[in-house]
């Protein structure tokens, strides 16, 4: 846990000390206060979104007993994107529905995320059992479908709105605060993670088979919807803030397990920190990489780093995964 804290502190310090202007990367604390404010906002956004994705991935991996589960792979992020696109279209066509976009369209994102997860679980059941491989395949199907439907809905939006949503779909770390989105996402994430931490012992016992978990006293029928709801809330809040980001929710919990063991009282905060570390670190890294014009989109950096990390995890842990 201390190692994780130190690594996270290092990533935060790196992000605060690294920036980018028209000439390329800049190092050290900026003289201008507004630039310092940009960096601070970006760091806080990455901490909230990364932490939420890490915790959401952990809940999904525990709930589904599937080391490959993550909000991106299971289509939660794409579902949130679809929810937000539909909300933008609904608000444009019916002005009285403009309230749907309040707080960065967090409510439609949560609904989209929950609907995607429900669909994945429905498709992923074989003879009443959640099969690990079928679940991942169901996630791929739902993710593709939600992504395609989001693009379809965007066809009906004005060009300017469509461009904004397309950029958001690539992933972003906001440097200028949309106070409502940032504060709402933070509140939702903090509350969800606090609730998840309270369920830590139940999650430990839920790591047994269903029959064994019930026999030691876990009310699996109540725990499962609670974890599903929390994981969807966390994924939706991260997606509303930073767009759909791959691999953070997958790699974060595995990194946490390597450093902090298997019990959830340690794993919940450790996964939160690992997700935050990955996203803040990736944001710092993209400031100093020269590739084409401007900064690399954060989604590109997390996908490249995350897939490499996942490949390493796969090679190292494949023999022990069920």
């Amino acid at each position: 846990m201390i190692t994780m804290l130190l690594l996270l502190a290092g990533a935060i310090a790196a992000r605060m000390l690294v920036g980018r202007d028209a000439d390329g990367p800049t190092f050290g604390l900026p003289d201008r206060s507004e630039i310092l404010s940009f960096r601070l906002t970006a760091t806080v956004s990455a901490l909230v979104a990364g932490g939420s994705l890490g915790a959401s991935g952990l809940l999904l991996q525990t709930l589904l007993r599937n080391p490959l589960a993550s909000p991106f792979i299971l289509g939660l992020s794409a579902g949130a994107g679809l929810g937000m696109s539909v909300a933008a279209w609904a608000a444009m066509s019916t002005p009285s529905l403009a309230w749907l976009l309040a707080g960065g369209a967090l409510l439609p994102a949560v609904i989209g995320s929950l609907a995607a997860l429900a669909l994945v679980v429905l498709i992923g059941r074989r003879r009443g059992v959640l099969d690990a491989l079928t679940l991942v395949l169901a996630g791929v199907i739902v993710s593709s479908l939600a992504g395609a439907l989001a693009l379809l809905v965007q066809q009906f939006l004005p060009l300017e709105t469509r461009g904004r949503i397309s950029l958001w779909m690539l992933g972003r770390i906001p440097e200028v605060a949309d106070a409502a989105v940032l504060s709402l996402s933070t509140i939702v994430s903090v509350l969800s993670i606090a609730l998840a931490w309270r369920l830590a012992r139940a999650m430990d016992a839920a790591a047994l088979s269903d029959a064994e978990a019930v026999s030691v006293g876990v009310d699996v029928r109540r725990l499962r919807p609670a974890l599903l709801g929390l994981s969807a809330l966390l994924a939706a809040s991260a997606t509303a803030l930073c767009g759909p980001l791959a691999f953070v929710g997958l790699v974060g919990p595995h990194l946490a397990r390597m450093l902090c063991g298997a019990t959830h009282r340690a794993l919940v905060p450790a996964s939160l920190m690992a997700g935050a570390l990955l996203l803040v670190g990736a944001d710092a890294l993209r400031q100093i990489v020269d590739a084409g014009r401007g900064r690399l989109p954060i989604g590109v950096v997390t996908a490249i780093l995350g897939s490499l990390a996942f490949l390493w995890l796969l090679r190292r842990f494949r023999p022990v995964w069920p």
Partner: peptide, 24 residues
């Protein structure tokens, strides 16, 4: 009985115990 009440009186051992791989 609720799982908690049943667990207070009865324990269960399956043929194939299953647990997350990282637990000791």
């Amino acid at each position: 009985a609720a799982p908690a009440d049943r667990a207070a009186h009865a324990c269960f051992v399956p043929q194939r115990p299953s647990l997350d791989a990282a637990f000791t």
